[in-house]
Nucleic acid binder design. Sequence first.
DNA 1: CCAAAAGTGTTAAAACTACACCCATGA
DNA 2: TCATGGGTGTAGTTTTAACACTTTTGG
Lengths: 217, 217
Amino acid sequence: LAGIAVGTVLMTLHEGRLQTLALHRPSQGWHLPFGTVGVREPLRQAAERVVAEQLGAQVDYLEQLYTFGNIVPAQGERQIQVCYYGLVPKGIVEAGGTANKPELAWLSETELGRLPVLEQKIVERAHSRLRGKLAYTAVGFELLPESFTLAELQQLYETILGKRLDKRNFRRRILELGILAPTGEERARARGRPAALYSFKAEVFHSLESRGDILAF
Amino acid sequence: LAGIAVGTVLMTLHEGRLQTLALHRPSQGWHLPFGTVGVREPLRQAAERVVAEQLGAQVDYLEQLYTFGNIVPAQGERQIQVCYYGLVPKGIVEAGGTANKPELAWLSETELGRLPVLEQKIVERAHSRLRGKLAYTAVGFELLPESFTLAELQQLYETILGKRLDKRNFRRRILELGILAPTGEERARARGRPAALYSFKAEVFHSLESRGDILAF
DNA sequence: CCAAAAGTGTTAAAACTACACCCATGA
DNA sequence: TCATGGGTGTAGTTTTAACACTTTTGG
């Protein structure tokens, strides 16, 4: 079907920053991953396929963001662009160009200027959606690997919310919710005391979900 | 452009219930208002136009809800449906069929069964979006006329959130925010003491907006 | 033994909840 | 004068926010 595209804002946490995946092609400059939709293809499936094709990675979390219909490229035809946003744990998609694939890069918020203005707005919308969902859903955990330390989780919240949190209060509240299970393992960093590792108990979270904003910090 | 439609979930408060506007045509039964999008027409403008044409009413508040792409009607072609939701103060759109226009009706939540199942899901999505936005935006006031009583505002919150609120606590909290201005007028009901009328101070609300969930009850 | 990151409790202030009576009006 | 809906304050409880030191490890 002419004029229907899907685009995706893929986000990850890297080096204490929220970063967005962008592609570079000589002909197009920097842009978000996008692609066309098959005539009989469901939209979400198209978005998944486009990400898989262009990045060679599966995305575990993908949600619809917004549909733009006023984007009129130079050519006469109007383009409908259905945008999704996705979250991946740090390091799942490795940046850097390969073979005939376009060059990939994680852009931090200060580097978004490389994108076309319209795409910058899409990314901002994705960021504010993520920020909003952080308090009442478990999206945050989609940005972490299977097991993680409390410090990593806290840093995630601090980065996305853009404010510092008190370590003791954060730990107390998140542990009292009972949504984390200690794995019994520890992770040793270069220096300092090793940190206990935890995994996310999705079932417990969902049982609490009705009384919203349980993760508001 | 073939295969692109806009649909709208128009909601209002009526008789203490959240109601949704539906159309009835002999050929189609009950359905949500929808229409096609002009080749060069922005999506939101198309949604506004469709509402205006079919209902003869301007909608002050209209936001994008979700885009469905997996709705495959009996015919071969796939249909993309970009859905919006809108809020109107009680009584703006009067129900009842006129001339060659389709019949209109406000359906309460218990009457939604008259709609096709897919459209019921769209309406549910609109309701939950509205519920979610109630706490951190001023959407609630879109459902009220220019001036209103505190009892009306409280009933609005009670209806949409589906729970009863304490009158004194509600009044104290909303007045302390400073987002309401007494108009100095009163409204006499059939019986009982007349109620003071207030209007919404949008500027004050927006100055508080940064610290979210200020209208959480 | 020292630098680095992990881990741990208490207290004061603020916010929330529950609760019952008087007031102004029209019929 | 009475029925109806509008309007008002307080006290106990819970939640939040602020705050500093000890522990464990690797170099």
